[in-house]
Amino acid sequence: MDSMKNIIISRRKVLKAGAVATFALALGISPTVLNADTAQDAPKNPDQLGFMYDQEKCINCKLCAKACNDTNKWEEGAEWRRVLVGKEDSKNFLSYSCNHCEKPACAQVCPVKAYRKREEDGIVVQNPEVCVGCKYCMYACPYHSPQFSPDTGRISKCHFCYERQDQGNKPACVSVCPTGALNYGKLTELRKTSSGVAQLEGLPNPELTKPSWVIIPKA
């Protein structure tokens, strides 16, 4: 009699545990179904803005980063825009900041909703005032765009100079580029550049977050 009771309970337990485990499993499998459209296809938002960077024209003067810092007053330790130099003095450069992605992973994971994607132009704006400094976005962003300042204990990042843009000005970085290597515009237009790509070798697959940038790689 006693063993009978045990069996019934354990079966129920097994069923419940199984159901919960299945649920946990289902949650754990992140939906990585590949979409038919590639990152080079037209963006969902026809007014999405993006950066365009011509690797051939860049001379690594770093004026873009300097102008960004002058305009946006980076918090200690937070670099909104960087110019990378290729390994072994390859003379390959990459000036980049935030790609204002179509699927911004930062906004997805941020528990306090510090990120918002503007409907009018797709700019991803982060509000440092409400950031709690959990750094979850730093792991989520494949491009290391969210930057943490140990000084202020919070994240900040490139906001595409949206306030300047709202007043009809160009983003600070673009406005100072002496060679015209760095540009910006509507992504639908930028994507018409025949030699433009969304990924350099070694960089993250653009399918991850669908970055709003076009790179013209060195031939």
């Binding site: 990378l84 390859s90 390959n92 792991y139 491009y143 350099l200």
Partner: peptide
Amino acid sequence: PIWDGTIL
């Protein structure tokens, strides 16, 4: 991270 922040 999936990208180490360097380019070739």
